[in-house]
Nucleic acid binder design. Structure first.
Length: 388
DNA sequence: GCATTTCCGG
């Protein structure tokens, strides 16, 4: 009976299915059977079928949650909109007398990193040390990443240096840390020094060069990777496509696209967005549209639509851009402030003063505050229309 | 049984 239910749970794909199973569990009085409720909780809190608030409500009904359950909720919040809640759950956990384990801390480190609060991460660090986890590789690696993400590279390297046994993840965390802090010389040094390199190491280095504006070097490293390194993955390709977009290197961009297809890399939404953006920036609107339309009924999000709407706008295809916006709303995608920025830029190109004002007002009506970029665009619209 | 690292649009 248990196993049958767990098998059903694993296959659960949507929120409504999840709720049905939840109802079933309650009806059969299995709510307090820990293997079932734990599995249900992790599905609710972590998978695409649920959401963390639902997960937390479910968690609250458990008579005696175990470390596993606490970790699930802390982890769920660490990747949610509000990572602060990971800490409130952690405090409740301590008050309930449940001892944190080697997975509790990495989730809390992640929450600190996402909040950009190294002070908070430092407290977690101290807590882990006090509880005898000073040699734990998993915890230390997540702490390195936490400090580095918070631009506290001195602390990150202190943790790194004090680790008696480092693995490739430790090295990658340092490499990425330096890159994120804009210190590509040190990042490169770490890369050259590390005992072995995997696809993440190469991707970190390449993306570091991209983020620091050295697109040529990023592509040069990628070429080197093709010869000496591991196979690139879809994450690597996102960075190199960004480099091609910045350089307007259409031919190279096309060959990146070929690499993706030839190697059967998963066409994730992120990758599709990068391809659309690259083609659009390189002036290949037809190809951008081709990738954008891609699989019919495929998943889309606001970032993908923004890339296409913005791509049309910068090439002066004003009507096409505005029509795509209409289509996007019909598709049920909610625009964000970048969408409006793209639309305002389309209006600037087309001299559409009235439409620009309309979009500018929409911004406020949908609870967004115009930022300096929006004002700049409006000034541009009015200046081009010859108004003062 | 949960695990840390790389990626998208202005």
């Amino acid at each position: 009976m248990f196993q049958a239910l767990i098998n059903v749970l694993v296959k659960c794909k949507s929120f409504s299915e999840l709720k049905q199973i939840h109802a079933l569990v309650i009806t059969f009085g299995l709510r307090h059977e820990s293997p079932i409720s734990s599995k249900l909780l992790s599905l609710a809190a972590l998978s695409g079928a649920g959401n963390i608030d639902y997960g937390y409500r479910l968690f609250s009904t458990l008579p005696a949650p175990r470390v596993f359950d606490w970790n699930t909720v802390i982890r769920g919040y660490s990747i949610s909109k509000n990572p602060n809640k990971s800490f409130s759950v952690f405090i409740k956990m301590l008050r309930a007398g449940v001892f944190p384990d080697y997975l509790t801390y990495p989730f809390l480190a992640k929450a600190s990193a996402r909040l950009l609060k190294p002070e908070l991460g430092g407290l977690i660090h101290g807590h882990a040390l006090k509880n005898g986890f000073q040699l734990d590789k998993f915890i230390n690696n997540s702490l390195i990443h936490m400090y580095a993400s918070c631009h506290d590279i001195v602390y990150a390297s202190r943790v790194f240096d004090e680790m008696p046994m480092k693995n490739i993840v430790s090295w990658n965390a340092m490499l990425d840390g330096y890159a994120k802090c804009g210190d590509m010389a040190s990042a490169r040094q770490v890369f050259d020094l590390m005992p072995q390199r995997d696809v993440v190491s190469w991707s970190c280095l390449i993306d570091g060069y991209v983020k620091n504006g050295d697109h040529k070097e990023a592509l040069a490293i990628f070429e080197e990777m093709l010869v000496l390194g591991p196979k690139a993955n879809e994450v690597t390709m996102v960075s190199v496509l960004c480099a091609c977009a910045h350089l307007g290197a259409l031919d190279q961009g096309r060959s990146m696209h070929c690499y993706v297809m030839d190697n059967g890399l998963p066409m994730t939404l992120v990758l599709r967005t990068s391809l659309v953006d690259m083609y659009a920036k390189c002036g290949a609107i037809e190809e951008a549209l081709y990738v954008f339309r891609g699989v019919s009924n495929g998943k889309t999000d606001v970032l993908l639509w923004n890339a296409m709407i913005g791509g049309l706008a910068i090439h002066g295809l004003v009507n096409e851009s505005l029509e795509l916006f209409t289509e996007m709303q019909i598709a049920g995608i909610v625009p964000d402030e970048i969408t409006y920025l793209c639309l305002l830029s389309a209006c600037a190109h087309g001299g559409l003063v009235k439409e620009a004002w309309y979009f500018f007002e929409c911004l406020g009506k949908h609870g967004m505050t115009p930022k300096s970029e929006h004002y700049a665009c409006m000034v541009d619209v009015l200046a081009r229309a010859g108004q003062k």
